[in-house]
């Protein structure tokens, strides 16, 4: 009985130590990767990774943005029209996209589309000992492999979020104005008088930069720290998507409370 209790306590302690050690390893890895920025060759590699991480995510971002904007216009219209306030459709679509849906949905899609791929790629590099080979050749894998992917994610995600919001607003215009007959002038002009550049657009960009840091960091670390077996990589990939989605949703609440909560 007593030994079972002690074992349980020991297990709690082991888990805690393991968690803390993982956070420490993640911090060291990020530090090693960030310090490696100023090198012309790394810029080349970063651009190449931006193609993989950013350009190849464009299609899913644009399509989801378009459809989310369209659905919001459709749903918002049916409610607003009862009050004769369908002119407020523009600000409703624009504010929800810029403040919340743009950064959050982009981050979730990014975690699924690019984050999982990053984890699997780096994890497989580790499993096939490519990372060790690089070290054998006196090339720091943190600089050569991790840093370009990290910076590509950090740069790409705010860009993707901006594109998402812009496409979503155009999608809202498509449904609200061209289909449901809201006046095009009031769609844009009420939106313009409501949306503020610093308050709404910049805060959205800051949000998505934070999400980019979290998602890319988790994705890269999970790959770099994966157990180098098939099961290990599959587990790491799953954990990347689950952890970064949870982190994004939790952080979103905190950031929203800080940015918009208290006047």
């Amino acid at each position: 009985m007593i030994s079972a209790c002690v074992n349980w306590v020991a297990e709690v302690g082991r888990n805690t130590i393991e968690r803390c050690a993982a956070i420490g390893r993640a911090g060291l890895m990020l530090f090693g990767a960030i310090v490696a920025l100023p090198k012309l060759k790394n810029v080349r590699l970063t651009i190449q990774q931006m193609y993989v991480v950013g350009v190849q995510s464009l299609l899913i971002i644009i399509v989801s943005g378009l459809f989310i904007g369209m659905v919001m216009a459709l749903q918002g219209y049916t409610i607003l029209v009862d009050y004769g306030a369908e002119g407020s459709l523009g600000p409703m679509v624009a504010l929800s996209l810029l403040r919340e849906l743009g950064p959050v949905v982009t981050a979730l899609l990014f975690a699924g589309r690019a984050g999982s791929a990053l984890t699997a790629e780096i994890g497989l590099m580790k499993a096939t000992e490519q990372l060790s080979s690089l070290e054998m050749m006196a090339i720091d894998p943190l600089r050569r492999v991790v840093a370009p992917r990290f910076w590509a994610g950090m740069i790409s995600m705010p860009m993707l979020a901006l594109i998402f919001s812009a496409v979503g607003i155009l999608g809202g215009h498509l449904v609200g104005v061209d289909w449901l007959g809201v006046d095009s002038g009031s769609y844009w002009s009420i939106m313009q008088s409501t949306v503020d550049w610093n308050e709404d657009v910049l805060n959205g960009v800051i949000k998505s930069a934070v999400f980019a840091l979290v998602v890319t960091w988790i994705a890269i670390f999970k790959g770099y720290d994966a157990v180098p077996t098939s099961e290990g990589i599959s587990k790491a990939t799953t954990e990347t998507v689950v952890f970064s989605s949870l982190a994004v949703l939790g952080l979103d609440f905190v950031l929203t409370a800080i940015m918009f909560g208290i006047e």
């Binding site: 624009a94 810029l98 860009m159 901006l162 594109i163 919001s165 812009a166 496409v167 607003i169 155009l170 844009w188 939106m191 313009q192 008088s193 949306v195 503020d196 550049w197 709404d200 657009v201």
Partner: peptide, 13 residues
């Protein structure tokens, strides 16, 4: 392009 759309058309900066 997205920044321009958001800046000029949406936020009317």
């Amino acid at each position: 392009g997205a920044i321009l759309l958001l800046g000029l058309k949406v936020a009317n900066q």
